[in-house]
Every structure is written in structure tokens, then in C-alpha cells.
Design a protein around this nucleic acid. Structure first.
Length: 586
RNA sequence: GGUCCGGUAGUUCAGUUGGUUAGAAUAUCGCCCUGUCACGGCGAGGGUCGCGAGUUCGAGUCUCGUCCGGACCGCCA
């Protein structure tokens, strides 16, 4: 037996016991005649002590030879400390070493294995196995473990059944780019890795598994971000014989359960709901961060036709009110203007109006708007003395999206986006389709199996872009945690949908024939939803980046810098797969 | 496909207008230290300044290219 206890579990109740622990050397504090070593394992840190004259010289010599991250087994007696350390759970005791066994030496690690490491991102990723020894990273993975465990517990209690679906499936044209896998046994043919188990879970509904879930990897070959990985995990769910309301209630329950059990955070109210149209109008986003106000205000009525051409020519003049920000200096305001003019935001400029404490207004367009006109702005924008109104104008979609960025930026700048505050929001009634300029056709906004709202059926033929879907997202703190829809379970409607998306009958049959065939054998009404598991856990942990919640993540070029993948294949391997590679075009 | 930021000691960073032998902190190593826990004291070693061209009497510093990392836009049903 390597150990009788873990490093983290010893307390004053163990005083007097002879114990054996094993772990990594965290730090060595050598005072000459007395030496302390902090030993670390997954469970915590415990201090080892060796005092000259009290333990053998051999033990002292052995301890002096240790270095950071050496793996050591130490036997000794648990004793009370002369000087206790209230910072440590084990701070009341220490182990008087009587036997030291070096299990493995270690090179000097390239960065310090401490909560506040000196290592940069790149280095920590290259030596991820060392980074994973650090408490902050371990805590994140522990949270992930707990969330997945509680997900399974909760879904089990409400009769969901976990069913695995295949990873080697078939490429489909809709949606993201597929990762493909060549088939050796079928030369020239390829599997695709699933972007999600969408069709399989619908087939399971046809099979009568009326409550399915799976915590499952999905793969999308698109460019990455801090909150996006090429392989990511979903809590994928589907239910039969349900309406939208049933799905929302079930999974609102799941989220509440997870926050309660994993974060000790109780949502006492129902999650607020908002239509997509309303979210776009009030926040310019389909995943608004409602931890703070600063809602959009339509200023058309008070800002147009006053001789200021920029506003007069605009489809929409939008303002937001930043509480207590009237003391922003010219320098700060210029910085904001430059911020919105960055190519990523793309605004041509920004107008502001300060609501001064003395009741006057100071705007960047005083030439066109007198005090009375600016007072009108303030009234419409519900701005009070001391507030700052920021105004953008332009085409509706553009200005909304720019104002969304500005609002989030101001929220961050004003410290209104507390990661320990959680503001969930159901966003409902997403459009069924969105027009794609590039391919000059409609794309499914959610996916091609999403059912249109009954009351919008008539629009399918007359104005497809206006059709709303039985589709919903759960947003939290400005992050899309998940989404889903009530599916089409009728073969004829599904056929019409494929038609709208520009599939010929043959293409639809080739790509999705199996699903349409299945629908001819008694498909129940069904719908579901999928949560982005990595994002959910990161949000629960109060982080914007999902990478620390994944044990071995990839960088923003899709590379794993630790194992150095992807990498070329040997020619023999290519030949066996009937593959050749093209030269990279410069 | 595009935009922005970064790359200097093991690590995190500083490095002035282009000018002497490129610094600090930390880590490492050595010596001292009996109550430390960010231990302390004294000392030492440690640099292809990402790489390649160019400008210049002279480049860590300026220019171009390239590689790597990060953030973002497009993209991601």
C-alpha cells in the first residue's frame, strides 16, 4: 500500500497516528537544522517536518536532496504544529517524517505549479499535464465532473435514458463543415464526424425511446474562438409527445438543479422569456446579457429631421443610457469612439450627450441640437442628471449589432457583468430561415428539421423569411448555453422544408432519406434541445473561456500544441486509404 | 479570407532618439540559518533578443517577409 491517507485529509483528529502519504513536492523550506516540505496531491497539501536531533540524519539528508515536483512517499507521525496555518485545511498538523522513499525524481518544471503560476498560456498548453496539477485548473475540471454527474442524476430521475450514437456517420451539406474520416474498406468514400447527433436522436424518438439524452462529443470544422473548440461536448436531449412548454420546463428544471447542486445557487423565480424579435429590438442580440439594463432606446422621433444628415439618412437612431457616466472625459469618449470605429465593430462614428448635474446637456452635436432637443433625448432615453447617452445610427441590423457590442463593452467597463451573478433568459420564436447572400438562398437558422409555427404556415409560400419557428435558446450572461426546437414529424412538411432550403427531391432523399423513410412508420411529435456543456460549465465557473474546463483543449488554430496535432500522414498510410494530398497554394 | 496585439534569461517582463559589457523579479545551483508556510541572508550560473533578408559606420530597437501564440470579424444549421 502506497499510502494510508491522502495529503488533504489529515486533521488534528489524526494527531498521534502513524501515517504514510504519497504525492508531489510542492515547496521545500530548508532552515538548516529544520526542514519543511509541502506535499501535494489531488486532495490538498500537508506539511512534512524534519528536525535535526529529532529524526535521523539520513531522513534530513534525503529531504534535502528533493526538488520541486519529485514524487515521494513519506511515513511519519501526525503531530500538532507549534505554529498553525489557518490558510490550510491541514494547517493545524504536520507529519514528523521517519521514512522517506523517493518514488520518482522530476526535472525542474518550466513554470511554477502554483495557483498563481508564472507560466504563460502557450507554455501551460505545451505542458498541459503539469498545468493540470494546479489547483485552479483542477477545480474547474472538478466542477465539470460534478455538472456531468448531476446532469445524469437529474435526467435519470425524470426518466431520460442515455443512448450512445455513432461517431462515424455521413457528411451532410447543411450547417458547419464536417470533419471527415476516410474509409479504408470503401476506397474513395468517407465518414463524417457528427456536428451533433441530431438525426439519430430523432430516429430514437421514432423508435419509442421517448426521453433520450447523451453527454456527447460533437465536431465542427470551423474557425475557433475562446468559447469554441473543434470538438466540444453537448448535453443532447430529445423528448416525444411534448410541446415547447414541456421541453422548456424540463430543462429549466435541469439548469436549476445543476446550479443548486454544483454552485449552491438557487433560482427561485421562473426564467424570464423574450421573443427573438424583442431581444433584437431591446438588446440587438439573440443572447442578451440581462445582468444589467442599458436597453436600446429608439431615438428616431427626437433625433431625425433636425438637420443632422447622419441621423436623417439613417434607418434607425439608437441610444443607450449609461448611468452615472456623465463625468466621462473627452479622452474617454474619444477612446469609445475609436473603439466603435474599429473594423470589428465598423461604426462610422458615435454621438454622445452628457446629462450634466446642473441640468444642462453637452453633446458632440450641439451644432444641430439645442438644449431643448437634447432634453427630449434624455426624456426618451430615461436619462437623469449625471447619465451619459451614447448614440449610433445606420441600417437597422447593422446599428443593432454595433450597439450590442457597445452595450456589452460599456457593461464590462462599468463593472456590471459580475461573473457571480447569473441571468438566464429563454429566447423564443426564432425565425425559421435566414437569407444567405452568398448562396442566394434560405438557410435553416436552427436546422432543417425545425417546425414552423402553425400560425405562420401561410407565410411559407408568400414570405418564407418571416416564418417563425418553434425554436428556442437558453441564454445566460450573454452566452448561448443551448437551444432546440420542436421538430417536424410529418414527411410532407419535411419535404416542403427541404424544398425551401433548395434541395431537390433526389438530394433530400440522398442526404436524409433514412429520416424521411422513418417518418413513414409512425413518428411521434417530438422536440428537444442541446446544451453546450463546455460553455455551461465555464459560465457556472464564471469564466469566458471554455479552454480551462477542457482537460486537453486545442488552440485557436485547432492545434494541440502538446501532442502537436494535426500532423502529416506517412505515404504508406495515405496509399492504404486511397488518398493523395494537394500542394498548399501560396 | 481579414483585422489587431504579442514573441528579449527556465519563467514573467523592462529595455529611452538606432550607440559602452542587454537589465529586474522569480525560478535554478552553492553556502548560512531550529518554527517556516510568498521563509530569510549572502553569492553564482543562466541570453542564436522567434527566424530570414534589408537600411545603417552601428539594429533587441527601423523596414519587408516568414513562423509561432493570443483576441476578434467573416464563418460556426
Amino acid at each position: 500500500m502506497y499510502r494510508s491517507h491522502t495529503c488533504g485529509e489529515l486533521r488534528s483528529s489524526h494527531i498521534g497516528e502513524t501515517v504514510k502519504i504519497a504525492g508531489w513536492v510542492q515547496t521545500i523550506r530548508d532552515k538548516g537544522n529544520i526542514i519543511w516540505i509541502d506535499m501535494r496531491d489531488r486532495y490538498g497539501i500537508v506539511q512534512i517536518v524534519a528536525e535535526k536531533g529529532v529524526v535521523t540524519d539520513e531522513v534530513i539528508a534525503q529531504l534535502k536532496d528533493l526538488g520541486r515536483e519529485f514524487v515521494v512517499q513519506i511515513a511519519g507521525e501526525v503531530i500538532e504544529r507549534y505554529q498553525k496555518n489557518p490558510e490550510l485545511p491541514t494547517g493545524d498538523i504536520e507529519i514528523k517524517a521517519t521514512e522517506v522513499v523517493l518514488l520518482n525524481a522530476s526535472l525542474v518544471p518550466p513554470f511554477t505549479i502554483e495557483d498563481q503560476t508564472d507560466g504563460g498560456e502557450e507554455l501551460r498548453m505545451k505542458y498541459r499535464y503539469l498545468d493540470l496539477r494546479r489547483n485552479p485548473v483542477q477545480d474547474k475540471l472538478k466542477l465539470r465532473h460534478k455538472v456531468s454527474l448531476e446532469t445524469r442524476k437529474y435526467l435519470d430521475t425524470v426518466d431520460f435514458m442515455e443512448v450512445e450514437t455513432p461517431y462515424l456517420i455521413k457528411s451532410t451539406p447543411e450547417g458547419a463543415r464536417d470533419f471527415v474520416v476516410p474509409s479504408r474498406m470503401n476506397p474513395g468514400q468517407f465518414y463524417a464526424l457528427p456536428q451533433s447527433p441530431q438525426t439519430f436522436k430523432q430516429l430514437l424518438m421514432v423508435s419509442g425511446y421517448d426521453r433520450y439524452y447523451q453527454i456527447v462529443k460533437c465536431f465542427r470544422d470551423e474557425d475557433l474562438r475562446a468559447d469554441r473548440q473543434p470538438e466540444f461536448t453537448q448535453i443532447d436531449c430529445e423528448m416525444a409527445f411534448v410541446e415547447q412548454e414541456d421541453v422548456l420546463n424540463t430543462f429549466e428544471g435541469l439548469i436549476k438543479h445543476l446550479f443548486k447542486t454544483c454552485r449552491n445557487h438557487e433560482f427561485t423565480e421562473d426564467f424570464p422569456r423574450m421573443t427573438y424579435a424583442e431581444a433584437m429590438e431591446r438588446y440587438g442580440s439573440d443572447k442578451p446579457d440581462i445582468r444589467f439594463g442599458m436597453e436600446f432606446v429608439n431615438l428616431n422621433a427626437v433625433a431625425q429631421n433636425k438637420g443632422f444628415g447622419v441621423f436623417d439618412d439613417a434607418e434607425l437612431v439608437l441610444g443607450i443610457t449609461v448611468k452615472g457616466a456623465a463625468e466621462y472625459t473627452r479622452k474617454q469618449l474619444d477612446a469609445l469612439i475609436n473603439w466603435v470605429k474599429r473594423p470589428q465593430i465598423g461604426a462610422k462614428g458615435m454621438i454622445y450627450s452628457k446629462c450634466n448635474e446642473d441640468g444642462t446637456f453637452k453633446s458632440s452635436v450641439d451644432k444641430f441640437f439645442d438644449q431643448a432637443a437634447l432634453a427630449e433625448w434624455a426624456k426618451v432615453a430615461q436619462a437623469e442628471k449625471g447619465d451619459l447617452i451614447l448614440v449610433l445610427s445606420g441600417d437597422t441590423d447593422t446599428v443593432r449589432s454595433q450597439m450590442n457590442e457597445l452595450r456589452l463593452h460599456m457593461g464590462t467597463e462599468q463593472g456590471l457583468r459580475d461573473p457571480n451573478v447569473f441571468a438566464p433568459l429563454w429566447v423564443l420564436d426564432f425565425p425559421l430561415l435566414e437569407w444567405d447572400e452568398e448562396s442566394q438562398r434560405y438557410h435553416a437558422m436552427h436546422h432543417p428539421f425545425t417546425s414552423p409555427k402553425k400560425e405562420d404556415f401561410d407565410l411559407i409560400d408568400t414570405d418564407p423569411g418571416k416564418v417563425r419557428a418553434n425554436a428556442y435558446d437558453l441564454a445566460m450572461n450573454g452566452v448561448e448555453l443551448g437551444g432546440g426546437s420542436i421538430r417536424i414529424h410529418d414527411k410532407k412538411l419535411q419535404g416542403r422544408m427541404f424544398e425551401l432550403l433548395g434541395f431537390t427531391d433526389e438530394e433530400a432523399k440522398e442526404q436524409f432519406g433514412f429520416l424521411m423513410n422513418a417518418f413513414e412508420y409512425g413518428a411521434p411529435p417530438h422536440g428537444g434541445l442541446a446544451f453546450g456543456f463546455d460553455r455551461l460549465v465555464a459560465t457556472m465557473g464564471g469564466s469566458d473561456s471554455i479552454r480551462d474546463y477542457i482537460a486537453f483543449p486545442k488552440n485557436n488554430n485547432g492545434r494541440d500544441v502538446m501532442i502537436n496535432s494535426p500532423s502529416p500522414l506517412a505515404n504508406e498510410q495515405l496509399t492504404e486509404l486511397y488518398l493523395d494530398t494537394l500542394p498548399v497554394e501560396k
